[in-house]
Amino acid sequence: MVESRSSGRPLATESVVARTTFINAARACFAKSGYTATAMTAVAQKAGYTPTALRHYFESKADLYAAVFAATSNEIYPQIVQHLDSPTMADAIEGSMSRMLEISKEFSEYIDFLYRTPSELHRHPELREKVEIRESFQEFFYSSLVSLGRKTGELNHITDELQIMFFRTVMQGWVYEGIFSRDITLTTQIALVKLLRRL
């Protein structure tokens, strides 16, 4: 994000700092109060800038939301994806779920923000196009998982499309129900891995 050097604009490095500060402040607000209840002025105040400065970087709340989503998913998604490079599908599921649990502790605000995202998209359909990466990430992740299972012989006989839907359903259910509750999440992870290890 290099800014053009027109007169009166901040220097590139300052502008990167300001952008990051705005994104972090906005993430905290969106995570805490949701999209509707987050005001641009509150984000500016939390970041320690004027509302005008915030508007200079992000024209609208929807643009700000898109930027927070991009910054957040760029941090989280690669950490999950690395587990697709496992010897079996059971290992990949075990590894990615363990990583998600660690992330939910280390980056709790990021996870609070991401956890709210499906609700926000449901309430504000205009945000959908701003976060297309979410859908493509999920498609990529679950289809890679199923093709790994097919390659190792863990899965066969059923169409990929249905298996992708099944594993997506279980893992998303695990995220929605358990990501904040360690007891639930560990037990589900064990059960799912046991189910796969029998195959």
């Binding site: 449901h122 279980v170 129900e177 639930i184 589900t188 059960a191 799912l192």
Partner: peptide, 30 residues
């Protein structure tokens, strides 16, 4: 026959609630 009752409970919870949330957030059922 390969899971404890606790494990089976959690697996079923994830399947049912996962289906509920996915259906709900998409606003249409696959």
């Amino acid at each position: 026959d390969f899971l404890s009752e606790d494990e089976a409970t959690e697996l079923i919870r994830s399947i049912v609630m996962g289906w509920f949330f996915e259906r709900h957030f998409r606003q249409e059922e696959i």
